[in-house]
Design a protein around this nucleic acid. Structure first.
Lengths: 276, 276
DNA sequence: GAGTGGATTTCGCAT
DNA sequence: ATGCGAAGTCCACTC
């Protein structure tokens, strides 16, 4: 029993609701209740929310949300207790440290969650239930939030201060290798600057690649040549390697780059524009 | 048609789903779709989310949320376009500046939302729908949050002895050069007192911020100026920093502040029952 | 586990 | 509108 993909009841009886919620919680399914409720939270702060019609969601990892019919943010919520453990898992996770309890006094349905470590608890009491459901949802897809490396390069060209104050790009080359884009320029003291951009956390290969570029340039010119690795971050162990190669690191997130381009109206919106 | 409180279908046909979603959007009802979808967002950033089972909610004020079966935060979202207008309304609000569109190609259901001013848009395409519903929820209740930093400030104003015997507040949220002083007053010996309040354990930033305030005020007046950091505790390493800055620390928990307000009848009574 | 900084931050209040 | 600070911030990352 209870192995159905979806259990859903409209205008359920109290008994029916209690069973569906209890089963859903016990089986670590996503549980949703739509109805009129009062909510109380105590923990980091205290809050009360009087009777009103809302949507309550308990996800299968124990995260709890209570949404009003308006507002982007949940009016009440409680994070799952075991976030750290969850993050180690590549796929959907199950709750561990959060205690859930569904009870009924014959008139109403109360869902209560207690998070021991953080000493916080939340309680929602439904006096009326319009719909209740237990869901067994599967979502293993990866979420990608991005601006392209090309976007990062363009952002640096239009706003060189992203690299450092006084940086002036003088020329740039096309992509020489998948994943790498170069920008050349000079700093405030006239020194030559070679920039290598990486969209993801830069690994050793990036540092070594940049080192080769810098070395190549140094052989052709006189004077100091600085090598700067621009990336959202460094992979483990790259920091000391960079230092030993006398290279520098400048953090830049694709998001930041995207913002810069957007603020200048330079972002490509071919799909977006079609919608207007 | 469509005047029902709740329209709810399990395993609906594509045609049925499209109608319920279209009607719900047109009538500014809260719309919810549960199923397998792909999501694409463009605007402040860009994101893609491959096929997976999720919960999509369009609230009656136009806020859109897409939740995976895990995580506290929505994987994708789009704020309603008219937040400011909404905030002026005491009761449930309706969307204005957000364009919604529901379409079907015979195989899937696509819900799109476009926010013109912010130039952002989101699109969710459902290849499979387990449940779809249109809700007419009413929630006019007020949400009360206690033991906030604001409450701590109020508590100090009504009971200055929480800071120290003889303290007399003269003003609060006084504008000074670097920002705002939480509470401003004088001690039993007439010395000026500047108070910075923190709800959580105060960190280095709090100490430095208070130091800036004190410095600013010392530049404007003659005589001693005391800086007191009021917080439930100090983060590690802040104690010596405070000492080196010649600042003082007075422990005060939000809970205590709340108790004070409650004892004066300045907050709605509500029980703080045992958690376990 | 604590500290630091970012977020498609959101939210609220101030000028 | 804009800007600043708070948030029951959450969240990822580093030490």
């Amino acid at each position: 029993m209870g192995h159905e993909k979806i259990v859903l009841r409209g205008n359920p009886s109290l008994t029916e609701s209690l069973k569906i919620v209890k089963d859903g919680l016990a089986q670590r399914r996503t549980v949703m209740v739509i109805g009129s409720c009062r909510v109380r939270y105590e923990g980091r702060a205290s809050s009360t929310l009087q009777e009103g019609e809302r949507i309550l969601i308990v996800k299968d990892d124990g995260n709890l949300l209570i949404h009003r019919p308006y507002d982007l943010e949940p009016v009440n919520y409680m994070p799952s207790a075991n976030r750290d453990e969850q993050d180690k898992l590549p796929t959907p996770r199950k709750a561990g440290g959060c205690l859930f309890e569904a009870t009924s006094d014959g008139e109403s349905l109360t869902i209560r969650a207690v998070r021991k470590e953080k000493r916080e608890s939340i309680s929602a009491t439904f006096s009326r239930i319009y719909a209740v459901m237990g869901l067994d949802l599967v979502d293993r897809a990866t979420f990608s939030l991005y601006a392209s490396e090309e976007d990062m390069r363009r952002a640096i060209l239009v706003e060189p201060a992203l690299v450092e104050q006084g940086f002036r790009p003088t020329s740039f080359e096309r992509r020489v290798e998948p994943g790498f884009v170069d920008v050349y320029g000079s700093d405030s003291e006239g020194r030559l600057v070679v920039i290598e951009i990486k969209r993801n956390a830069a690994g050793k290969d990036s540092a070594l690649q940049l080192a080769r570029y810098v070395e190549s340039i140094r052989a052709q010119v006189t004077g100091t040549v600085r090598g700067i690795l621009v990336a959202p971050g460094l992979a483990r162990g790259v920091q000391p390697l960079l230092a030993s190669l006398s290279l520098e690191f400048k953090p830049l997130s694709p998001r930041k780059a995207f913002e810069v381009l957007k603020s200048r109206g330079l972002v490509e919106q071919h799909e977006l524009s079609a919608w207007f």
